[in-house]
Amino acid sequence: MTLYLIKILIFPGLLFLFILSLIGEYYDRKLYARMQNRVGPPWFQPVADFIKLLGKELIIPLNADARIFKILPVFACVATIVAYLYIPLFSKTSLLPFNGDIIFVLYMLTLPTLSYALAGWYSRSPYALIGSTRVLTQLFAYEVPLFMAVLAPAILASSWSFSELITFYQTHNWLWLVNILGFIVAMITLQGKLEKVPFDIPEAETEIVAGVFTEYTGPLYAYFRLAMNMQTIAGASLVAAVFLPFGFGSCLIVNFVIYILKIAFILFLLALMRTLFARLRIDQMLVFCWKYLAPIALAQITLNIIIKAWL
């Protein structure tokens, strides 16, 4: 029982995720800066930002619903942490494995997005309102290709659970390489889920101030930022577990290093995308997701079904 609690609260649970998310933010910002030929922020920057926001005054708008306004940031954090506990990181099973946990994690990772939308709605500010409608519109664009892309490897392994999926790919060496199309789709849609350029339409600074977070100050905004960072790590871990299912050998330390390398690689790709592209319009995003990404994901599923007939 105590061991379980330690695992959930410290390693590889809450505290580990917290530290990793701060490191992830620094890594992302530094890479972004270096790709623009800048020096970039110092290493303690995410910590300083977080503490500073915690120490600032908290303003709640008069017509906002105070209770929900305060609960939503925490809710977003908790949903992400719960999702993270169910993803296998460097051992074959996660902390709390059960059959169907892939679908569970996907749904858990949708909850922060919904809480952003609700946060915009309950702020009662026009900018936040536009932001929240954009969050929801975008959700309908990327969610379907992401689900299809993640489910394709699971179809090949004919299992909805992470541990069985990993075991399957371990017995069939190099078979995970056929999921490369799905991996690309998942990376692009993950960028949409994390609301970063080119899909930062919901918080487009130049158009709608700060989107759904317009009215959030101080500690509450800090929690939203934290949720965003943790979502980045959780999303990257999900993609790593499903599309790069290797490095789950017997030596835990080697596995851990491989896990960190995988996350670093995925964050690198995300930062690269952020640097290369400019923001799309919401209608362009919808068309892109439904016209190109969804058929590619569908092609991946078809391919996997054909391969499965062969095996």
């Binding site: 020096v39 922020p41 110092p42 920057q45 500073k52 900018y127 600074e205 905004y221």
Partner: peptide, 21 residues
């Protein structure tokens, strides 16, 4: 802009007064 790089000092440009110092 990248030439001057304010982010060295941890500065970010924010769109809303609620986030700014």
């Amino acid at each position: 802009t990248p030439t001057y790089d304010l982010e060295r000092f941890g500065s970010l440009l924010k769109g809303t007064p609620r986030h700014a110092d």
